[in-house]
Design a protein around this nucleic acid. Sequence first.
DNA 1: ATAGATGCAAATGTTTTGCAGGAAA
DNA 2: TTTCCTGCAAAACATTTGCATCTAT
Lengths: 145, 145
Amino acid sequence: MAHEVEHRTLARYLEDNQLKHTKQREAILDVFLEVSGHITSEDLYQRVRDSHPQIGHTTVYRTMKLLCEAGLAHEHNFDGTTRYEIAHEHHDHLVCTRCGKIIEFECEMIESAQEKIAARYDFRVLRHRHELYGHCGKCQEELAT
Amino acid sequence: MAHEVEHRTLARYLEDNQLKHTKQREAILDVFLEVSGHITSEDLYQRVRDSHPQIGHTTVYRTMKLLCEAGLAHEHNFDGTTRYEIAHEHHDHLVCTRCGKIIEFECEMIESAQEKIAARYDFRVLRHRHELYGHCGKCQEELAT
DNA sequence: ATAGATGCAAATGTTTTGCAGGAAA
DNA sequence: TTTCCTGCAAAACATTTGCATCTAT
């Protein structure tokens, strides 16, 4: 079994919460980690069925919610459809709308400005999304010709 | 009729596109401008029915799409629910995930930091989305009790 | 043995679509 | 009178829930 660290994290979470360690949960976690992108519940369900045809969609939903609670996955709602991504350090995105290239960035200055904004409105920030859409350098050159 | 400028803008859009000027479209635009917040389709539908009980939900959806095309409204998807807001200058959002309150903010510092990031990656930003999710002051108090 | 998990089917909630009748041009 | 619009009902999706059954502990 690949992704041993994540499976151990799941096991610990299940034990800590008196939840049960089932084949379905293992299988879904494995497929989720394998695809390693932003995946919808439906896509995940289809892929899980390739190797485990008896697993239902309901279980995929319930397991993904569990993985989010265990800190292994993040849920992201993009244009009305929920997508899951593997949890990792926070970052934001530059998205090229022409070639689809995605660049990750982090910015201390923006993070601290966010804190100031939140304080001004007496708001406690739990998470955020920040995406810049536009054209990458290569696409700018290609458009200039 | 209040909001004459917007109604004239709608009228022009309809004429320019050989679309028809109906009571329903007027009524929905009026209610939308009156509430002047971030409103869901369902909320809008309920309010429209107070004064125009015969108008259907379908027409609300279709009209809001039209208002977006006419540049009078903007559609936003916050955590899976679509909300409409009156089109105006760019701003970002603080979204309370407990009570649903939405606060708009603008921040020069963040805008200029975005420009620096973009320059660093040789990226030309055309638009962006920036949302901070968390708890508003009132909800923080309620949670503390 | 028993608390918890599963999978089906049905319910829910949101948005879209087909269609026949109705209104604006 | 022709084209577009409306409202209903039904469809289309995405997600959740009730429940009887099964399984890990």
